[in-house]
Design a protein around this nucleic acid. Sequence first.
DNA 1: CGAATTGCAAGAGCGGTGCTCACTTAAGTG
DNA 2: CACTTAAGTGAGCACCGCTCTTGCAATTCG
Lengths: 223, 223
Amino acid sequence: MPQGPTPRQRARADNIARIKELALGQLAESGAADLSLRAIARELNLVSSAIYRYFPSRDELITALIVDAYNDLAASLEAAGSTRAPHRVRWSAVTGAFRSWAREQPHRFALVYGSAIPGYRAPGDTIEPAARVVRAFCAPAVRGPGARLPGGAADGLAGQLDVFADAVGVERDPDAVLDLAAAFARMVGAVQLELNGHFVGTFEPADALFSRFAEREADALGL
Amino acid sequence: MPQGPTPRQRARADNIARIKELALGQLAESGAADLSLRAIARELNLVSSAIYRYFPSRDELITALIVDAYNDLAASLEAAGSTRAPHRVRWSAVTGAFRSWAREQPHRFALVYGSAIPGYRAPGDTIEPAARVVRAFCAPAVRGPGARLPGGAADGLAGQLDVFADAVGVERDPDAVLDLAAAFARMVGAVQLELNGHFVGTFEPADALFSRFAEREADALGL
DNA sequence: CGAATTGCAAGAGCGGTGCTCACTTAAGTG
DNA sequence: CACTTAAGTGAGCACCGCTCTTGCAATTCG
């Protein structure tokens, strides 16, 4: 027996995909809090309760969208950073890709890095995809001058930086690791500010600001 | 005539305050998207429709809460930064106050710097309070080595930095202004990440990380 | 092949939401 | 005291997430 997916499984997967697709469309129009299972069912010519055959609750649907968004963003960063170009160029590409992805899909960015949806608690399934994003973000700076001393298990911030470096797969000295963490936080914050309109009247368009940020970070990281 | 507020105006103001208070309580428990006017009315022994005498819509209530939150945060930063201590100490105090405020009232932080509430568009009333926060944040670094050259009206990023410096009331060279913008974005991003649990497993607690960030920024700003 | 099992969809229903509207009641004003 | 105006009422509309029972169809098994 070929043991492939049965027709039933195929149909089910198709429906799940269709639901996610419609949910994404709704997300783009109204945001996560307005995501309505009933509306999805309506667009799908289904009775409202039928949706619950595929997603046991609204939160489960949202979780699936979050995981997808993390993976999509991570893939985008990985694609931007996997060239043979010099590290500095790759850094610029990855940071640019982050912002571009967020600007193209602001609703999905809000889903993953915006405020937690009220009453919604991210389950464990999301932490791996989230880490993948950070890994991809740091990839261009993964190795450089001042590799990590094999000290290990230091207390306090030094120890935390070691843990972070390990999780991200970076071999750098603590100062560089700190720079990476700062760069990621800066990125998330700046994108958040841009998307929420906090730059209107000052940094609009913000292209120059973002590329200058990236240059400085590249300098600090010795890329 | 003393021309003070009439009893009616007093009662009205009291009711508005009470509504906002209950809304804040609800916010702390469930987040902005779960904010229910009917629940507020219930807690207030009012019939649901009576709320609309005070706030024409749910969005208007939320806007009021946002303005209050901005002003509260700004006041907190201003208090932390208005000491006679050296600039560097004040910088540390202000950045610390920002994080503290956000950690104490995560729901309010989410309201102002989190993702836009779906379907909700911030009206103009919010931009002044928002600017006040940025001003207070930058206050400790308002003046320092390398004051701004009276060039003015440069194109591109330099011009934007000038606009930003003017709006914030900073007299610094473009590099320092850029540092300030980066520090603010870093702050918002890092707090966002911390509040949303992205630091679990790495930077938890994040106190050391945040103070190290602040130190580096103080260095860069020459404080 | 027929029967049993499994998965899907239907539809009614519960308790909740924001918001509107015609209405009564109460308070302040000439 | 008569009048205006603001506050509160309650029914109602259209929507929401979610549950539950019921009928039907496809698949799997004896």
